[in-house]
């Protein structure tokens, strides 16, 4: 049982690696742009007015965004941060995205 489980894990990883490398060689400008934003700080305003600041780690076609080491502010002019850590923001709840340039 255990071995089988491990094996499937490995193939999964391989698959992702291959995919990643393949993507690197012939990537569209849009994807390259997204890739360039990875690990930079994003400031995302959500539909309920809260603002999240954190490192951009991952996204997909529906604009679901994962931020690392994220802090939460209750509103745009609220200064008291609350540490959240790793969060996923569903695309449909994103109002604006700002990049720390």
């Amino acid at each position: 049982m255990k071995e089988g489980h491990n094996a499937s894990n490995i193939t999964n990883d391989d698959y992702i690696h291959e995919n990643g490398e393949a993507a690197n060689t012939e990537e569209s400008p849009a994807k390259q742009k997204l890739r360039g934003w990875l690990n930079r700080n994003l400031r995302i305003k959500m539909t309920d007015g809260r603002v999240l600041i954190g490192a951009f780690l991952c996204t997909d076609r529906d604009a679901n965004v994962i931020l690392g080491s994220c802090s939460e502010f209750l509103s745009e002019d609220h200064t008291e941060a609350r540490t959240l850590g790793l969060v996923m923001i569903p695309g449909r709840h994103i109002v604006t995205i700002h990049l720390d340039a």
Partner: peptide, 11 residues
Amino acid sequence: ITELELGELLR
């Protein structure tokens, strides 16, 4: 992000 495939993760 519209250029990403369904289920594709940019990460």
